[in-house]
Design a protein around this nucleic acid. Structure first.
Length: 722
DNA sequence: TTTCCGCCTG
DNA sequence: CAGGCGGAAA
């Protein structure tokens, strides 16, 4: 029901999200964008604003008014010693991304900004990462052209100056040289080159100085903002719920995960974030120098207790306005979403790893094979991605104390999570991941940027992640044994996934309906119903986080291929419908991504079910026909719940015997049995297609499949379980 | 698409 | 041997 109900919303959100992603994309690759990432259209962004503003920038010239974005330098990125280089790397990427921006200048960009200064620190991975981020940027903001034109002008000016110098040299040479010798000319050229090099060097130094100066100013500004924010943060967080309907909604971010064609998130892409602590420390120690080999990802996320520093594109004027807080709240949300996305992505990637040998339990491999729809580019990025995620993972590891006894549930979650691992054929779980995913549910922070006053419903995450794992696993070409009984068993699932009671216990805001209504069956088959209940029941503030995961789950739910659980469900469906149409199948397997193969497979399953069914009917009908005594014959044609035929049918379609065989199926079976019997008795079985008539009769006896089958996963029998 | 048939596996 | 599955035929 979850998927069916909310799919349209997600689709709508998907569109919005593409927009959001695009905006983030632009921001992430921007050298410096003064634009408000949440309210500003991409076309209004000026990636090179900083350099345009450089000449007239001084400590007093920054007047920030919310309206005049063009004069707003971005302070966040410049906070970081390596930011310039990173952005330079981004600029390179943009060249790749937006080839129309490339200019045929014989003066390279490095000549303007300084090759060394800007290339140091821009590791290949950062460039790769940044570049891949933008692969979807089809619509290019026109302003980029303008900005690039400015850069180009700068470059051209530089070139012209050099040419002037060269020309002066040349004139001198002509004036003095009555007899011009070749070696002299060569010497002159060398001198010219040297001079032009020196000119460029000077320019570089000037620019560098300007950059440093600006950086210092921005640092100062950022500190001010930091102080201002220190008092606001908590209010921001508290007011978050009321702000949900405004501006960017995390729901939108959430839908990133459900976008099949968007590998960015799954590849670890995140909006531009602020810095690793190390970098900031360097800055604050007055060491803004570029650190070679420093982390190449601009993880602009500073965690300091409960304070979260977002050196994003908010500017001071906006901070001071009433909107600033809201924007910060939105920024927080986005941060969270992106980090969660990274973690989830990592988990999925690790679980998608089909080669167990490549996943070691001791380390999180950075180059794990990717069994999902990961392309090679993504592989190239994985190094950077891994670094980012490791930073994320490291935090919970730090915050969690091993002897923390306050989190029995989270720990049980870990244990549950490890359950598949008990099967030796399954890839072992990377241990370091676990604490990051399931830290103690307490005041410990799950993720660095999560508002402490509104803790992530960790059990929700725990809960959803379990499902996620189950479904990821079930969709993988793993050894059948991993997925069949007891792993796929409802009851064992019940033991493995105790989510809703947990949730109810942990989240009092959940109504009882969510606790026992949807989960009355208590089996894993109801977990998606639980998702729905959660979605409906959870508070608005939590909705975003739940939905973030739910969307991702939906993405996973739409798995290709059918799992043993689906076979089980199909068999149970056979109790109601012997001849389901393909549309019926689609209705009752909402968690299956239908394609031709899957559809025919499902149809084939039902065909096999019928085959078995009719074989048994014929067999018992013939057996009854052989009965001499009418009373025995009558008994043989009855399908009591203690009869052999019933046992066989139940064994076949309801192997684990956890579903109450519906009375209707017993009736239909009796009808079929009698039809077969009468056909045999009357000798109609001589006709090669004598069964067709019986099939036709039986096909009309289909009854509606219960709604519980509409949920993804295996249905549960309330009769038996309740 | 459905049914029949045969093969393979646990 | 039961049951799943694939291929051929209708």
């Amino acid at each position: 029901m979850t998927s069916v109900l909310f799919q349209p919303t997600w689709k709508r959100q998907k569109r919005q999200l593409r927009r959001v992603i695009y905006i983030n994309l632009i921001l992430s690759v921007s050298m410096d964008s003064p634009s408000d990432r949440f309210h500003q259209q991409p076309s209004q962004m000026c990636p090179f604003e900083l350099y345009r503003n450089l000449p007239d920038s001084n400590s007093t010239s920054h007047r920030f008014s919310p309206g005049s974005l063009a004069s707003h330098p971005l302070f966040g990125p410049l906070m970081h010693p390596s930011s310039a280089s990173q952005r330079w790397g981004s600029f390179h990427q943009r060249q790749g991304l937006f080839p129309e921006l490339l200019v045929d200048d014989d003066v390279s960009e490095e000549d303007v900004f300084g090759r060394r200064e800007f290339s140091v620190g821009a590791t290949p991975s950062s460039q790769c990462c940044a570049g891949d981020k933008g692969q979807d940027s089809a619509h290019e903001p026109e302003d980029w052209n303008q900005n690039f034109a400015r850069v180009k002008r700068l470059r051209i000016n530089s070139a012209l100056r050099n040419e002037e110098e060269v020309g002066r040299e040349g004139k001198k040479g002509r004036k003095n040289g009555a007899s011009v010798k070749i070696d002299e000319r060569k010497r002159a050229e060398q001198g010219n080159r040297r001079q032009s090099r020196e000119g460029r060097k000077r320019q570089r130094q000037e620019l560098k100085l300007q950059l440093e100066e600006t950086r210092g100013k921005l640092l100062e500004l950022q500190r001010k903002v930091w102080r201002v924010y220190g008092g606001q943060a908590n209010e921001e967080k508290e007011g978050e719920e009321e702000q949900e309907d405004e501006a960017l909604n995390l729901d939108e971010v959430a839908d990133m995960f459900s976008n099949d064609n968007e590998p960015l998130i799954s590849a670890g892409f995140s909006p531009p974030r602020c810095s690793s602590k190390k970098n900031n420390e360097n800055i604050q120690n007055g060491n803004p120098g570029i650190i070679p080999g420093e982390t190449s990802m601009d993880l602009d996320l500073e965690l300091n207790g409960d304070q979260v520093w977002l050196g994003c594109s908010l500017v001071r004027g906006e901070w001071e306005s009433t909107e600033g807080g809201q924007k910060f709240a939105q920024a927080l949300k986005q941060e969270l979403a992106s980090v969660v996305a990274q973690v989830i992505d990592r988990v999925v990637r690790l679980y998608a790893e089909t080669d167990p040998s490549s996943v070691t339990s001791a380390t999180v491999p950075q180059e794990t094979g990717v069994a999902m729809d990961l392309n090679s580019k993504r592989r190239q990025r994985s190094d950077t991605v891994a670094r980012v995620v490791e930073q994320v993972e490291a935090l919970p590891l730090i915050t969690k104390s091993p002897q923390d006894k306050r989190a029995p549930i989270a720990q049980s979650g870990q244990k549950d999570l490890l359950l598949p691992q008990s099967n030796p054929s399954l890839a072992p779980l990377p241990q370091p991941l676990l604490p990051a995913l399931f830290p103690p549910r307490s005041k410990d922070h799950f993720l660095p940027s999560y508002p402490p006053d509104n803790p992530v419903p960790l059990p929700l995450l725990h809960y959803t992640m379990q499902n996620l794992f189950a479904r990821s696993l079930s969709s993988l070409p793993l050894n059948k044994d991993c997925l069949s009984e007891p792993f796929m068993d409802f009851r064992s699932h019940n033991a493995v996934f105790p989510p809703l009671s947990l949730l109810g216990q942990l989240d009092p805001s959940l109504p009882d309906r969510a606790r026992d209504g949807g989960m009355r069956g208590g089996g894993a088959g109801m977990v998606d119903g639980a998702d729905a209940a959660l979605y409906l029941a959870a508070g608005k503030a939590k909705k975003n986080y739940i939905l973030t995961l739910a969307c991702f789950l939906n993405h996973l739910h739409s798995q290709e291929g059918l799992s043993p659980c689906h076979l089980k469900k199909a068999k149970l469906m056979f109790f109601y419908s012997r001849y389901p149409s393909s549309s019926t199948l689609k209705t009752f397997f909402p968690d299956v991504k239908f394609n031709r193969c899957v559809t025919s497979q499902l149809i084939k399953w039902f065909s096999n079910f019928r085959e078995f069914f009719y074989i048994q009917m014929e067999r018992f009908a013939r057996q009854a026909a052989r009965e001499g005594l009418a009373s025995a014959r009558e008994r043989a044609l009855r399908l009591g719940r203690d009869s052999e035929l019933y046992r066989i049918l139940n064994m076949h379609y309801n192997k684990s015997n956890d579903y109450q065989v519906p009375e209707r199926f017993v009736e239909v079976s009796e009808v079929a049995l009698r039809e077969f019997f009468s056909a045999i008795q009357s000798g109609r079985d001589a006709d090669p297609c004598w069964k067709k008539a019986i099939y036709k009769i039986i096909s009309k006896l289909d009854s509606p499949v219960p709604d519980s089958f509409r949920l993804p996963g295996c249905p549960t029998d309330t009769y038996r379980m309740g």
